[in-house]
């Protein structure tokens, strides 16, 4: 289920004094089964970009394709698109509204027009996918859960639509370190089960740890793209556009400049550790 974006431009409030260009000729493609990170700071256009990927914002025809469907085409089947692309917004727990967790998770599948048995099966499956026990939480009100649990329920609500592509906007925002770790494990699990994942973040640490490939957005344009290692090579330029590379990538550069033999773009703690050990034992 590939995503194909060809020169997407988005202008907010065109023709008014508030006119602003959120996206400028952005092109990208995402393959089936990839785990892709989109990074950029606030106002870089990343949120606008993802709303285009499931037809919430409409583009010109021939610009955004998902799974072969042209999302900009007149009369594009929005339900069909949402069946393919699931979108989890920032702080998704603020969209919960039903009396019970099960009913809330069922909202998406119900809108897809599925039958009751299928919906029930999907709700249970989705709750398990986010690490919740259906028997325990199904009949609870979503409003009596803890913050982290609420967010899981909200994600389950999107997973229950069984999209082949899942897009998450800052899924770990506001969580504490343990909550972040658990959230990332959960997302990795979803990816491992065969879903294409697109994660939006402003933390290089997080995307570096999880994603296969990154798109760095700056002022509505793609500044860099490639594997984390390929992107982190540009550490100075990234810093200038308000993004920071992981601490260990910084250390690797410092050591390289001091004469250590460190591979380019190295950033994982374990890799940096191994490289340092190699240098120290080799030097003796």
């Amino acid at each position: 289920m590939p995503i194909e974006v060809k020169k997407l431009t988005h202008v907010y409030m065109p023709g008014t004094p508030f006119e602003s260009r959120a996206l400028n000729a952005v092109s990208l493609s995402i393959q089936d089964g990839e785990f892709v990170g989109i990074i950029g700071h606030t106002g870089s256009g990343k949120s606008t970009l993802i709303t285009h990927l499931n037809g919430l914002e409409k583009s010109e025809p021939g610009v955004v394709f998902v799974n072969g469907m042209d999302l900009g085409e007149k009369g594009a089947d929005l339900i069909a698109i949402r069946r393919v692309v699931g979108l989890v917004f920032q702080y998704p727990e603020y969209q919960l509204f039903e009396e019970t967790v099960a009913k809330d998770v069922a909202f998406g599948p119900t809108n897809l027009g599925l039958d009751a048995d299928e919906i029930k099966r999907r709700v249970e499956h989705a709750l398990k996918q986010v690490g919740l026990d259906p028997a325990e939480v199904s009949e609870k009100s979503p409003f009596e859960l803890s913050g982290g649990q609420k967010r899981r329920v909200a994600i389950a609500g999107v997973l229950a639509m069984q999209p082949g592509i899942l897009i998450l906007d800052e899924p770990a925002a506001g969580l504490d370190p343990m909550g972040r770790r658990e959230m990332f494990d959960l997302i990795r699990g979803i990816h491992d089960s065969g879903t294409t994942v697109v994660m939006v973040s402003h933390s290089m640490d997080d995307v570096g740890r999880l994603c296969d490939r990154l798109f760095v957005l700056n002022r509505g344009e793609i500044a860099y793209t490639g594997t984390p290692a390929e992107v982190f090579v540009h550490d100075n330029r990234l810093h200038a556009i308000g993004l920071d590379v992981p601490e260990c990538a910084k250390l690797a550069r410092r050591l390289r400049e001091a004469g250590f033999d460190m591979p380019e773009g190295i950033y994982r703690t374990e890799d940096v550790c191994a490289a340092i050990i190699g240098n120290l034992s080799g030097g003796k």
Partner: peptide, 20 residues
């Protein structure tokens, strides 16, 4: 305790374990 330590401290911890 469910918290994090600075990445460099984690690295230092790893390196010490390997005898640095």
């Amino acid at each position: 305790l469910g918290l994090d330590v600075p990445e460099i401290m984690k690295l230092a911890h790893m390196l010490r374990e390997r005898g640095v």
